[in-house]
């Protein structure tokens, strides 16, 4: 197995008004190759999990390891572009990358011609796409993505989802993607893990790669996952 996260018995809680609020309670997870989607309702700790994997947050307890060569791309839940840099400069941020290459990446996310625009001159969805291009800029072996498409309209979202699938297939990079959309999870995931109650509540392999790419969701799997989510919330 190439790049990916390995997590054992992960605990994390936040202090809120002097009280410890547990978010992750003994989470175990070993990432496999392909696209792994972490699915869960708002506030269940998806962002927290991703931040711990990315080394931005320290776990209270447990072991977190990231296999691979360290070339990690990150898409945050918000675009987080440098407001003083143009779109192209943001894509190339922190890299020794020529301008034309970042222009190519911008074209890939549908932003050809916006190389010199500053973030405040772009729409919210455009900023998210710049952030996506930035995450792909260093040719990552692992991409951590926090609801990367949530801010996009239906059409653009589908384009970007297809782009991610294409890039993943051609480069063989691994992806750990967080979403609260079951449809998105079913379309993108080689594997879908449901995060609930601070740990993995369900873990499904998706047969997506077996057949041709289709937006028709796998009904059996959809029902299975829906049942997991409902059981947890009743």
């Amino acid at each position: 197995m190439t790049a990916g996260a390995e997590i054992a018995n992960l605990h994390k809680s936040y202090g809120l008004r002097g009280r410890a609020v547990p978010v992750l309670t003994g989470l175990d997870f070993v990432q496999r190759d392909g696209i792994t989607v972490v699915l869960g309702p708002s506030g269940c700790g998806k962002t927290t999990l991703l931040r711990i994997v990315a080394g931005m947050e320290a776990p209270d307890d447990g072991v977190v390891r990231v296999r691979g060569d360290g070339r990690t791309g990150m898409v945050f839940q918000e675009p987080r572009l440098m407001p003083w840099l143009s779109a192209a400069q943001n894509v190339a941020f922190g890299q020794r990358r020529r301008r034309c290459e970042s222009a190519g990446l911008l074209a890939l996310v549908g932003l050809a011609g916006f190389e010199d625009a500053l973030p405040h001159q772009l729409s919210g969805g455009m900023r998210h796409r710049v952030a996506l291009a930035r995450a792909l800029a260093n040719g990552p072996s692992l991409v951590l993505a926090d609801e990367p498409f949530a801010a996009l309209d239906q059409d653009t979202r589908e384009d970007m989802q297809d782009l991610l699938l294409d890039v993943q297939r051609t480069t063989g990079m691994n992806v750990l993607l967080v979403t609260h959309s079951l449809d998105e999870a079913l379309y993108l995931g080689d594997r879908i893990v449901v995060l609930d109650g601070g740990r993995i509540a369900a873990d499904h392999s998706s047969p997506r790669n077996a057949g041709p790419r289709t937006r028709e969701p796998d009904r059996r799997l959809a029902e299975l996952i829906r049942a997991t989510l409902q059981r947890k919330h009743s």
Binding site: F76, R80, M82, F93
Partner: peptide, 15 residues
């Protein structure tokens, strides 16, 4: 939010 971007790119303190 911006400092995290540096962390995700393994920036040194100087960078």
């Amino acid at each position: 939010e911006l400092l995290d971007v540096g962390t995700s790119l393994h920036f040194s303190r100087g960078r």
